[in-house]
Amino acid sequence: MNDWITTPLTPALVRGALELEETPQGLLPHRLPARARAQCTDGQLAMAESQASGVRIALRTRATALELDTLPTKRVYVGAPARPDGVYDLLVDGELAAQASVSGGSTLTVDLTNGSIEHTVGTPGTLRFAGLPDHDKTVELWLPHNETTELVALRTDAPVQPLADGNRKVWLHHGSSISHGSDAASPSATWPALAARLGGVDLVNLGFGGSALLDPFTARAMRDTPADLISVKIGINLVNLDLMRLRAFGPAVHGFLDTIREGHPTTPLLVVSPIHCPIHEDTPGPGAFDPASLATGKLSFVATGDPAEVAAGKLTLRVIRDELARIVAQRAADDQHLHYLDGQDLYGEPDFAELPLPDQLHPDAATHLRIGERFAKLAFDGPFAGTGPHTAA
Rank of each mutant, 00 (worst) to 15 (best):
T64A: 00
D157C: 07
G105K: 09
H173Q: 13
T149H: 10
D183E: 14
A130F: 15
V139M: 06
W191T: 02
A158Q: 14
D93Q: 14
T64W: 07
S176L: 05
T123E: 12
G166T: 01
T107D: 02
L163D: 10
K74P: 09
A184S: 10
L198H: 13
T113H: 11
R155L: 00
S177T: 02
L194K: 10
L141G: 00
P159L: 04
V78M: 10
V170W: 11
E150R: 09
A130Q: 15
T126R: 14
A158S: 06
V102F: 13
T107H: 05
E140P: 15
G125E: 06
P133T: 03
G104D: 00
P144Y: 05
L154N: 04
N167Q: 15
T148K: 13
P84K: 00
S177D: 04
L127V: 08
V121G: 08
L143S: 03
G181L: 03
N167K: 13
V170K: 15
D183I: 12
N205V: 12
P133S: 02
K74Y: 07
V92P: 05
D136Y: 13
P192I: 03
V204T: 13
R155G: 07
L132I: 00
D93L: 07
G131F: 08
G122N: 01
P187I: 06
P159R: 14
G94D: 08
T70P: 02
D165W: 08
W191G: 01
V121K: 12
R155K: 11
S179L: 09
G105E: 01
L90A: 04
R83E: 13
A196R: 03
V121D: 02
